[in-house]
Design a protein around this nucleic acid. Structure first.
Length: 870
RNA sequence: GGACGUUUAGCUCAGCUGGUAGAGCAUUCGCUUGACGUGCGAAGGGUCAGCGGUUCGAGUCCGUUAACGUCCACCA
């Protein structure tokens, strides 16, 4: 085996090699295994159009940490990867590409367009998947899925037919959100509102009986051509008498009724609303209640249609101007005032949405929502952090029927056929050829496709084989954890929940682990238009995937946004390098074969570090169980850098030169192995690389056992003893630094302590780390001007006569005594407080007492030193 | 209009079930210390946004105010 490591860690040399080692050996693969408990995560499928961005990087890092950890813990850990066809986004890209060739969808026709689309998918769909591999994602690639593959399509079809048969899917003329640019309907969730400057147009409609006018206000005067009523509040005294009468619609010169409806706010505007059922969702509702005619006056691409009379062919905005000009000329305009107005935009292209009545397919939501609400209320599925259940409830409790048909070609085509002869609608699992009602063969399939989220909603179980009751489904479903951003709770999480409950009878996952957004260094959302996005692949290239992953996990608390700072990646990279060099140090000091276990006898410092790493395993595990990945990472960092590298390795250096070296080597390897195991989920590449290089058992670190807390390795007393020594060493170094004594100047040390035993054991450390030549415990040799250092456990004197300014030294000691005195008074104040002693828990009181006695000891020692000097 | 989040060292952020504040970076000082200068040793720096309450004790719990941010609603 090659036991040489480069002087600094080069991720580029390691990562791809390690990844293919894992992949070709099948370490990512999971099987149905009755002897193990399953742990399943289904990956939120990235769009095939997508390129890896920081959001994916975060999302996948968190999932991979969980999966790798559980796999090591002995679960049959399955992470199912896959991609989403992203109907609207993908279709837009393909249309755009075609445009460059001068082609439109209609030029090609549906079949040839889909051919192109699939080719495009073959060409680019794999890109994101290979980028996920760069992150180190330990997905089971044998199970990679695509929302439009055969199995997922079958699931989609099954759900559609089932819901249709149960009457939960229906087709009807409803008002929907129409994007005049994408030329398709979109769901309520896909509309984004934006505040814009607009105008409030006050108009007057003449009463039909000639007795005057009714004044009303609107933000969209052009829709008046489709008005079929004006409405007032039933209790509005101003207009009560007019209800039932008629007004004449200006320009159109048609009589329309004055109706009463509680939807009207008396206090807003004039308290009179024009009702255009075809072009406003609220008006549509009013129209239904009053059986009003629905008159659509625009085309699907945003122009006025033939019902708009002389305005036909104008764009909506042009029509608005023309109509206002005509109204003005004919004296129907009262005033025009500026106002702020919220406009709905298409989430994809940001075109203003036109509410429009059209024939679409819908899912009835009310009944489906109930079990989904219940499942979270009863804790069958939990949000982490919990507060996100509010968004979830709010969305489900106010849910409206879901418009699922899209006027697109790329996606799952709606499995409904219409008989041209008798008009029958056929929805079935198999493509029909004959009309079951009239027996003819003139059937045409619905042209529309389904909302992308319709198939995404089935993802946690369609990927496991549903609707077949496969072994995978039985074993891995329900999945355990869903990791996703808060921005798609209502798009996706909600829909997976009700779908899972409705079709599989169980929740799709037990925990929804929500993370925030990765923002830029200024806290702005990363976006294409701002050009402030940071490419994870470039970061990986420069710093390595481990550094990126570690950075993303560090300080990431569930549900909160984080900022991407280059310096944070750098410090993660430095950390990787630190471990690398620690490993290098161990390798340099190995000598032939080594036993992979702890030696029988452990020294003080061995027990200290072993006890520490043992406790670390416990607390890291606890953090992971609570999804506190950021805290787990912090503890690993502190232990590895401070305890292991800065202390333990330093403490070993002397030992490695003497007879005890074999034991020291075994402890070093033991602790390093534990560290690598604990760190592996976070930094998989470097840990595997090091593990393979140092003496080890087994084939791969990623399949090693997760360290467990071991009672036998818990040494609290030795931890305390080491602390005493470390405190003394720090104090000496501190004092020397203050006095500008260079490390090269070594001195004797005189130590007086009640813990002579401990300090004798620590003699070599103190010599090495506190720059001592001799350490003397015999007070009689203590003479002359000395620098005094006082810790609660010891008084240490350094003979630095030439540097000692007795007066200054005295002043320093006196000041320190004052400080300690103050601290002591604080603690005593608490201890003298009757209610503290009686009400605080015993361990807190004991802690305070111990602290008081330590402080008192320190004061005593300081007093002695002061007395000796004066 | 409603809901939620954030406010802690110069900067970016941790701080779990209340026990008397931490990290990284930055700053200052000192180091050719036999793994690492992507490093080592040390130092300075915080009335934890304000106010009130609960408690022996509050950064942590409750109420309230403010600033910033996000989501939902959409009165035409």
């Amino acid at each position: 085996m090659d036991r040489e490591l480069a002087k600094s860690y080069d991720p580029r040399e390691v990562e791809d090699r390690i990844y293919s080692f894992w992949e070709t050996n099948g370490y990512f693969h999971a099987n149905v295994n009755p002897d193990k408990k399953p742990y399943t995560i289904v990956m939120p499928p990235p769009n095939i159009t997508g390129q890896l961005h920081m959001g994916h990087a975060l999302d996948n890092t968190l999932q991979d940490i969980l999966i790798r950890w559980r796999r090591m813990q002995g679960y049959e850990a399955l992470w199912v990867p896959g991609t989403d066809h992203a109907s609207i986004a993908t279709e837009a890209k393909i249309v755009e590409a075609m445009k460059k060739e001068g082609l439109t969808k209609d030029d090609l026709g549906r079949d040839r367009f889909l051919e192109r689309a699939w080719k495009w998918k073959e060409q680019f769909g794999g890109r994101i998947v290979s980028q996920l591999r760069k992150m180190g994602s330990s997905c089971d690639w044998d199970r990679e899925r695509f929302t439009m593959d055969e199995g997922c399509s079958k699931a989609v079809r099954e759900v559609f037919v089932k819901l249709y048969e149960e009457g939960k899917i229906y087709r009807g003329e409803r008002i929907i959100n129409w994007c005049p640019h994408c030329l398709t309907s979109i769901s309520d969730a896909e509309v984004e509102f934006e505040e814009k400057d607009a105008f409030f147009y006050h108009l007057r409609y003449p009463l039909a009986d000639g007795s005057g006018y009714l004044e009303l206000a609107t933000t969209r005067p052009e829709t008046m051509l489709g008005d079929t009523a004006v409405a007032v509040h039933p209790e509005d005294e101003r207009y009560k008498d007019l209800v039932g009468k008629k007004v004449i619609l200006p320009l159109v010169n048609k009589e329309i009724p004055i109706i009463a409806d509680e939807y009207v706010e008396m206090d807003f505007g004039t308290g009179v609303v024009k009702i255009t059922p075809a072009h406003d969702p609220n008006d549509f509702e009013v129209g239904l209640r009053h059986q009003l005619e629905v008159i659509t006056i625009t085309t699907d691409d945003g122009y006025m249609n033939d019902l708009a009379g002389k305005y036909e062919g104008l764009s909506i905005l042009e029509a608005r101007k023309a109509i206002m000009a005509d109204l003005e000329e004919q004296g129907y305009v009262v005033k025009v005032e500026p106002m702020k107005h919220n406009v709905g935009n298409c989430y994809r292209c940001h075109t203003t949405i036109e509410p429009r009545v059209s024939l679409q397919w819908f899912v009835k939501m009310e009944e489906l929502a109930k079990p989904a609400i219940e499942a979270v209320k009863t804790g069958k599925t939990k949000f982490v952090p919990e507060r996100f259940d509010k968004i979830y409830y709010h969305w489900l409790e106010n849910i409206r029927d879901w418009c699922i048909s899209r006027q697109l070609w790329w996606g799952h085509r709606i499995p409904a056929w219409y008989c041209e002869d008798c008009g029958e609608t056929i929805v079935s699992r198999e493509d029909p050829t004959v009309c079951p009602k009239c027996g003819c063969t003139h059937l045409t399939q619905d042209n529309d496709t389904l909302d992308t989220w319709f198939s995404s909603a089935l993802w946690p179980f369609s990927t496991l084989g549903w609707p077949e009751n496969t072994e995978d489904l039985k074993y891995f479903y329900p999945t355990e954890t869903m990791v996703t951003g808060y921005d798609i709770i209502f798009f996706w999480v909600v829909r997976m929940m009700f779908s899972g409950l409705a079709y599989t009878g169980d929740v799709p996952f037990h925990t929804v682990f929500i993370h925030g957004l990765v923002r830029d260094s200024k806290g702005r959302k990363m976006s294409k238009s701002l050009g402030n996005g940071i490419d994870p692949l470039e970061i990986i290239e420069e710093y390595g995937a481990d550094a990126l992953r570690f950075m993303l996990a560090t300080g990431n608390s569930p549900g909160n946004d984080m900022r991407f700072l280059q310096e944070k990646v750098e410090s993660s990279r430095n950390f990787a390098n630190k471990i690398w060099n620690a490993a290098r140090f161990i390798l340099m000091n190995l000598d032939g074969d080594i036993e992979l276990s702890l030696p029988e006898t452990l020294t003080l410092e061995d027990k200290w570090i072993v006890s520490k790493v043992n406790t670390l395993a416990k607390s890291v595990t606890e953090n992971l169980e609570k999804f506190e990945l950021g805290m787990a990472v912090q503890k690993l960092y502190d232990f590895i850098w401070d305890d292991f590298c800065d202390w333990y390795i330093e403490l070993c250096k002397t030992r490695l030169q003497n007879d005890d070296a074999p034991n020291a080597r075994r402890v070093l390897v033991f602790v390093m192995t534990n560290m690598l195991e604990l760190l592996h989920p976070f930094m998989p590449f470097i840990t595997e690389e090091i593990w393979q290089t140092i003496p080890h058992e087994g084939e791969t670190l990623m399949r090693s056992d997760w360290p467990l807390f071991d009672e036998q390795l818990d040494f609290p007393n030795e931890e305390k003893e080491m602390e005493r020594l470390m405190e003394a060493i720090r104090a000496i170094r501190n004092r020397r630094a203050e006095m500008n004594v260079p490390p090269s100047k070594k001195t004797d040390l005189f130590i007086e302590t009640a813990f002579e035993e401990t300090f004798k054991k620590g003699k070599p450390f103190i010599e090495r780390l506190a720059f001592a030549t001799n350490i003397l415990f015999d007070e009689s040799e203590n003479q002359g001007n000395m620098v005094s250092i006082v810790t609660p456990d010891a008084t240490i004197k350094i003979p630095l006569e030439e540097l000692v300014d007795t007066k200054a030294e005295l002043a320093r000691l006196t000041k320190e005594r004052e400080n300690v005195q103050k601290q002591l008074e604080g603690v005593l104040a608490r201890l003298n407080n009757e209610s503290f002693v009686s009400k605080a828990p015993q361990n807190v009181v004991d802690g305070a007492k111990e602290q008081a006695s330590r402080l008192q000891e320190k004061i005593d020692l300081l007093n002695q030193s002061i007395a000796a000097m004066s």
